[in-house]
Amino acid sequence: MKPAPFDYLRPATVADALAALAAGGDDARVIAGGQSLMPMLNMRLVQPRLLIDLGGLSELGTLRAEDGWLTVGAAVTQAQALARPGLTDEVPLLAAALPWVGHVQTRNRGTLCGSVAHADPSAEVPLCLVATGGEVVLRNAGRRRTVAAADFFLGPLTTARAADEIVESLRFPLAAPGSGHAFREMSMRHGDFAIVACAATATAERIGLAVGGVADRPTARSWPLAPGGALPPDLDAHLNAFAWELGGDDDQHASARYRRELVRRIGRTVLEEALSCRS
């Protein structure tokens, strides 16, 4: 199929983009890399009258570490982030997850902010943002506001972003000394949507697990370590309770029962890896 007719705008500044978005209202959509929106346009799942392209705005193409955060602008592609020197030290969980995002060709176009704005429950970048306690910076013509990742995702393809706002940037906290991280997912083949994805973090006192692909949004839980810094003796019970809490449905890819078992097994594996790799 082909998309329904629309007007295309490539603004010169962010201010121009925000003004056009405010004027366009519900009939306007924002695009950066297009890896999520273009298929929806072609299938006519969305039919905007105006498409506003942010991809050429240099002020949204910044990727910088300062004040304890790695800030990723809306025009930064997944390939650019993955190629960043030092990403493994700055946000090791993101560095571990990005190779699982699509394929080389799609990562050259797809943006991190676009993945977060799309809010697919199986996507890796939203999962990492939730797992690390990151933030989403939203901006419209009149203000800028910051929303915690855990509060940003409301359901499948549904977020706290207002119609006149863009996801201006993402903020990932820089990894603390002595912390550990691990990521794994199960899919039909590499690059497909995850059946279950697990992102783990570990500090001197706690372990955390975030899961995607099961609930209607990425979801995280954490537990205190046992004395001596070992995994809690009742970890399997915690993972079982978390797996049931996430719910999940039967579909053409996997049953809810299978997804629960993946949460238990992959969850334990990544938590063990995160704990063992603390620097």
Rank of each mutant, 00 (worst) to 15 (best):
P85I: 03
G86L: 07
G86Q: 09
L87K: 02
T88H: 12
T88N: 07
A96I: 03
A96E: 13
G102A: 15
H103M: 10
Q105N: 10
G110W: 01
C113S: 14
H118V: 03
H118Y: 15
A123Q: 01
E124F: 08
E124C: 06
V125T: 14
P126R: 02
C128F: 04
C128M: 13
C128P: 05
C128V: 14
A131L: 12
G133P: 12
G133W: 08
G134M: 09
V136W: 10
V136N: 11
V136K: 05
L138K: 11
L138G: 06
R139P: 04
R139S: 12
A141T: 07
A141I: 06
R144I: 10
R145I: 10
R145C: 10
V147R: 03
A148L: 14
A150T: 14
A150P: 07
G155N: 10
P156R: 09
P156I: 11
P156N: 12
P156H: 12
T158H: 13
T159A: 10
A160V: 04
A160I: 07
R161Q: 14
E165Y: 12
I166Q: 03
L170P: 00
L170Y: 11
L174D: 03
A175T: 04
R189I: 05
R189W: 07
H190R: 15
G191Y: 02
F193R: 10
V196W: 00
C198A: 15
C198I: 04
C198G: 08
A199S: 07
A199K: 04
E205F: 03
E205N: 11
E205I: 01
R206M: 11
G208Q: 06
G212D: 00
V214A: 00
A215D: 11
D216W: 09
P218V: 09
P218Y: 12
S222M: 04
W223T: 06
